[in-house]
Structures are given as structure tokens and as C-alpha cells.
Computed example of a mutant assay.
Amino acid sequence: MSSKAKQTQKLLLFSLSGSRLFGIGTLKIREILPFKPLIKMPHSHYAVIGTMNFRGSAVPVIDMAAAVGYPPLTAEERKTASIIITDVQRQETGFLVRDVQKIIETDWKKVKSPPSALGDKAFITGLLNMEGELIQLLDVELLLANVYPDSLDTRDVVLTDVQSEALKALNILLVDDSRVARKQLCDVLDAKDISYQVTTNGDEAQQILLNSNERGKPIDILVSDIEMPGLDGYELAFNVRDNGTLKQPYIILHTSLNSEMSLSYANQVGANEALTKFDADELLHAMLRGARHSEQ
């Protein structure tokens, strides 16, 4: 490959409570709207404050402050609040935020992983220092899973004995910075008794690939998220393809974004496949195509 992969990320910055800034990637955003009256939803999660009509569809609206543990916005605060319509994991959702600030552009390498002291329930997927101000990138997948816990259930995928054995014979590496996404990936393989390694970031994944190769047990299938702090999925795929000493794995990149641009770029940096996460059937059948590829 002739040029190094580099993918900048545009972030929308906003506040939920006080002056602390949060951010989400703009590729996840469909539209930003001023607050409008909503239709109440009975028996819904406490953070779901109603539904709104968006381009002919009923879209649930979540008070993001309430969802992450802050006091919900008051009726007075809602008058000047905004609703961010997102498209994540094939689902449109509105998030009520107190104040939309601005859009910035940054390199994923500048985004740091959150400290482990924050615990598994923190809704933070990365931290960015911008001119001395700390911006917390929200883990939208974890937030949605907390509001809609049934979304974590993965439907059973039927595999033949031959297909299951083909996957069990492979060395599989999963990479994702989102705890929810890792659980979904792992649950699918655990249900089929398929072994794998898993890590939370691209740098560790790259080292695992190198170490496995040196031990004579190279990784056959690499399944990686695209949007990760530090070494993202694009650059990880590029580095793997650019390393002439590695036995080349079948690379499956996945993203929570319904973005043709993201998937097209994944192919450009050397991925064999690019998927919009999460669909258990699509993932396992992509792995089966990788199994067939490794036999060639």
C-alpha cells in the first residue's frame, strides 16, 4: 500500500449539566433540531421523554442527562435545549441535550481511552484534551443498551456442524472499545463454543497480531471496530496489510454508523469486508467467508 491511512473525526460538542463538555462523532448525527413538544410514551424507561415525528417516522427521544445519571432537564431548560437525531446500530434516536456548542475536527490518535477507575458503567468511550479543556466522548451504544436492555440479546444463528467446526479451527481476534459491542461480539461466539481473543484497542490488537505470528499461531480472522481512540480500525487494517512479515488475516471492520463513506474507506485500507454493526447472522457469515478464504 502506498499511503498511510489517516482518518480525522468531526465531533459535535454539547453540554448536559453545568459547563462540562461532551462529544459524539458527527457521522452518527442525522440532524440537530430545537426542542419541540413530544408525544408521551407509557411504560417506557425514565429517560425516554417521548417520541417525535422525524421525516415521517416516530423517533424516541431520550433525555441524555437523565440517561447518564445527571438530573433531567427542567421544563424551563427544555425551552432552549436541542434534540440531536442520531443513526446508530440501524436505529434512529433523538437525544435531548442542554446546549449544543460547536463542531471540531480532531485525529483519533489524540483521543485517549478513559481510565479504568471510571468502571464498566461509565458512559465514556474516550477523552480529548482541547486547549486545556477535557471533552468526554459518550459511548452511545452503552447508553442505548442501558435504556433498551433487550437490544443486547442476540438472536440465535443456525450453523451446520461443518460451519461451526470451520470457525473453531481458526484463531480469531475481536477488537472494540465499547463494552456493549464487545459483549455482543463475544456472546455470539460463546453461544457457538467458538474460541477467540478480545481486546479493547488497536494498539493492543496490533501487538497480539505480531506476537501470535511470532509464535507460529497467526490470527486468521481480525474483527475490529472502526471508530476507536488511538489506533483506529482503519489504521490497524492498513498497518496489517502494510506488514510484509505477517501472515495476512481476513479483516472484517464494523461500524455503528449507517455510512456508505465509512464502509467504502474500510475497503480502501485493505479490509476484506465492512459491516454495519450489529447483526449476529451477518457477522458469523462474514467469518465463514473468512474461513473459506483462509483455506485457499
Rank of each mutant, 00 (worst) to 15 (best):
K192Q: 09
A271S: 03
A166S: 14
I39T: 15
D156R: 15
Y70A: 11
G69T: 01
K121G: 02
Y148C: 03
S151N: 15
S212C: 11
K192L: 01
Q206R: 13
S178G: 08
L284R: 00
T200W: 14
D139T: 02
R98P: 03
A65H: 07
G216W: 02
M130W: 14
N53C: 03
M1F: 03
F278M: 15
T199L: 15
R179C: 04
Q7S: 12
L137Y: 01
I104C: 11
G126L: 09
F14P: 08
S264G: 10
I32R: 00
P218E: 04
P229M: 07
N267D: 03
I85M: 08
D87P: 03
I103V: 11
M287P: 07
E204M: 15
L144C: 06
V188R: 07
K36D: 14
A291D: 02
W108V: 05
Y234P: 12
E105V: 15
K121P: 00
I32A: 00
K4M: 02
E141P: 13
Y250N: 04
N129V: 04
L142P: 05
V88I: 11
R215C: 08
L21K: 13
M287C: 02
D150R: 05
S116V: 15
K10Y: 06
L263Q: 13
V188Y: 06
K79Y: 01
D203V: 11
L209W: 03
S17C: 04
V188W: 04
L152A: 04
E77T: 01
L275H: 13
G56T: 04
S195M: 05
V48I: 13
I124Q: 12
T86W: 00
I29H: 13
Q268F: 01
A145D: 14
L284S: 04
G230I: 09
D153I: 12
Q207V: 07
